[in-house]
Nucleic acid binder design. Structure first.
Lengths: 246, 246
DNA sequence: AGCTCATGTGAACGACCTTTACATGAGCTG
DNA sequence: CAGCTCATGTAAAGGTCGTTCACATGAGCT
């Protein structure tokens, strides 16, 4: 039966070859299925075809694996938010809303990452690399808020960009975790999570005095400076940000 | 020390006397300490001074205990939100913001309940009693939003109350879970979670056209159904909801 | 006093996390 | 190519948990 050994060897010998990566992938799948709480180290090992002790050669413990996944998640998150922001094209408000949708899309499409990042109880501030990745992701929102704040309509006080970024983040996270994932998604809602968040952000921006009527595609480089009376409601699409005709 | 034994016996003999309640209290403490994920059934039993099998006389399994705690949490939550709302006194906007603060206060002061309710992975829709309790709590926010929507300034479209309620909920939950609890609270912020949420809600309400500061109230032919408070620009310091002078 | 049933106990099972001692073999060195 | 070394795997074992089951206890009723 030595051929058998040879064959197995070709597939995966005594040494796995890429166990670390295999474990991360397995864990990702398991978390997506059963949540970070339900995921077990032993299952990941089984899925990778190794003994239960093998993972300890690559991760100090179960938490470190989770932490690695969270970090990877923040990196992908940053990348997607950056792409959505697209440096503020075609105009700042449009791009800003696209970032919001990208946030929700990530939460929906990458439940395992999102779970590990925000719902697994992994302490972000304990691992410097993780914390840095988390901050880089947040900085995308922050930078976008910065650009938006700079466009504050004349006559109104300029809102602190950091505050705006935190507000947007909390809205997106709130909608994502309450309505857009897992069991929470089963709640009966009058509108989709995307629409809900979009309306929320638009109303918020209007509250800051930004023009939120984007119906005519902007021809100039930036949305036209706010008309003097902008805050009197001239920028409101008919019916408001909600009640969009399907 | 035999009196001690006698006393203990009087307190708890072979039969505990009030094990169910003792387990709930023990679990509450453990969850506050280590989170719902870290809480163990065995620990709760130990803390109540009974064997590991005893809890099964009162709860089908660990999840049912968690679920019970979540339900109790929603009941207390509802009660606190109701008290904060105080039927909209002294005016709708003020009361509405008080509800927001009560939300955060609950998340901060009752981390165990909040954890069980929103972060433990307990499926709300599986248990009818739990779902009902959850809905009653949400209905407080919803009712408040209803009243607020009725005050929509004349001339602007009236926002759907349900949507407003969902928006407010998502803001409160987002701020609470990102900045106000556990490790998340360690993030460095330019302002406290309470201030952050208050500003967020105020900006949002302004986006809906509610008078939250210096903006002159638009007069119209149709007087609001609910008396004078609509046009009283109370609550917000000049310069916007942020930039509060300490 | 005796019965009954809710409530608690102890033992046992399987799953998991983690550590420890040992096995294997990939890659370097001579 | 032989031999060494060390990263990477395994098996076994200890501890904790969740859960079940047969059995013990005693509170309350008749």
């Amino acid at each position: 039966m030595s051929w058998r050994k040879e064959t197995r060897r070709a597939e995966r010998g005594y040494h796995h070859g890429n166990l670390k990566e295999a474990l991360l992938q397995a864990a990702l799948g398991l978390i997506a299925e059963k949540g970070a709480a339900g995921f077990t180290f032993a299952d990941a090992a089984r899925m990778a075809g190794v003994s239960a002790a093998a993972p300890y050669r690559h991760f100090r413990d179960r938490d470190e694996l989770l932490s690695s996944i969270a970090q990877r998640g923040f990196e992908q998150f940053e990348s997607r938010l950056t792409a959505a922001w697209d440096d503020g094209r075609p105009d700042t408000v449009t791009a800003f809303e696209r970032v919001g949708r990208a946030y929700l899309a990530f939460a929906r499409e990458e439940p395992a990452f999102y779970n590990a990042m925000f719902e697994s109880g992994v302490p972000v501030d304990v691992n410097p690399a993780l914390q840095a990745a988390s901050e880089r992701a947040f900085n995308v929102i922050r930078a976008a808020a910065e650009r938006l704040a700079a466009l504050a309509p004349p006559g109104t006080p300029r809102p602190p960009a950091m505050m705006m970024a935190l507000h947007i983040w909390s809205m997106a996270h709130g909608v994502a975790s309450l309505f857009s994932r897992g069991d929470a998604a089963r709640r009966k809602l009058p509108m989709s999570p995307d629409e809900l968040l979009e309306a929320e952000v638009l109303i918020y921006l209007r509250g800051l005095g930004f023009p939120t009527d984007r119906r005519p595609p902007a021809k100039s480089a930036e949305p036209p400076p706010v008309p003097p009376e902008a805050s009197s409601g001239s920028g409101v699409p008919p019916g408001g940000p909600w009640g969009k005709p399907k």
